[in-house]
Design a protein around this nucleic acid. Structure first.
Lengths: 145, 145
DNA sequence: TTAATTGCAAACGGTTTGCCACGTT
DNA sequence: AACGTGGCAAACCGTTTGCAATTAA
């Protein structure tokens, strides 16, 4: 991630425009590989690395959300009761959160969606106290996780 | 994952007991590597593979929650507005969910936690309609993601 | 004795990166 | 001309797995 004051100046590229376009035309929350397959028709020499690079750029620009970060660590919790988590975007620390959400949230969602809902997961993002006081001018970095 | 009718019969192992014990003694939601380092003192020949194997077993037994799945794909979304997701635990499909949560959820959480909360993420888990009708007797598999 | 468990190391798989030619400004 | 971008392939890194030896039941 860029920590300098100046943001990077990007040039246009057909590939990146088509990647964003492809992403906007679907609601299937595709993987990088799916986008790659999709564009392979029009760009026979397309590389997976190019797709990843551009998705990261688009994310930098705030045009794309990353739903799951497959590149981070698995974290484990022996507390199997219902509770949520607060994740510090600076240091990655994970804290428990006892946030009062409706106890029948799954049932409600189930009824509203017309699907079998067996559970949910809620994470809050932000800065923990130590990191909050340590950082003065920090880049935005929205929705990183 | 075991799809047979009979569940696997586990034997005791010092390593697995210590792994669960270590996990229960902390609230830091550690990674596998952290647990490995922790137990390396008492088990000098301990292997990371053993830690992973046992964490999976403990998860099978419902004694451990996995907070982030680092082994799955990143998924991308060009819709940057606030919305949630429904993830099918059978086929992995991701659907948008317009669930009515308080618009000031982050502010409330921020006040309650005494931390800077910049955002949150809510995922529902369950079975999508196609998978729901396809599966008759399916294993529980709670909290996989 | 039977089968689960372990340590080791190799394999796996999604993602990143170095290199150099090419495209954009 | 200056520098971001693309394609290719190797590297990366957390996680899984095959194997022979060990250990629980």
């Amino acid at each position: 991630m860029d920590t300098t004051v100046e943001a990077k100046r990007y040039k246009r590229s057909r590939q990146r425009e088509r990647i964003l376009d492809t992403l906007r035309r679907t609601d299937s929350h595709p993987t990088a590989a799916w986008i790659y397959d999709e564009l392979k028709r029009d760009f026979p020499d397309l590389s997976l690395g190019t797709v990843y690079r551009n998705l990261n750029i688009l994310h930098d620009q705030g045009l794309v959300r990353v739903l799951q970060s497959g590149s981070t660590f698995d974290r484990f919790d022996a507390d199997t009761s219902v509770h949520y988590h607060f994740v510090c975007q600076a240091c990655g620390k994970v804290e428990d959160v006892a946030f009062p959400l409706p106890h029948d949230l799954d049932e409600r969602a189930s009824a509203m969606l017309g699907r079998v809902v067996t559970g949910h997961r809620l994470d809050f993002f932000g800065l923990c106290n130590p990191c909050s006081s340590a950082e003065s001018a920090d880049p935005v970095e929205t929705g990183k996780l």
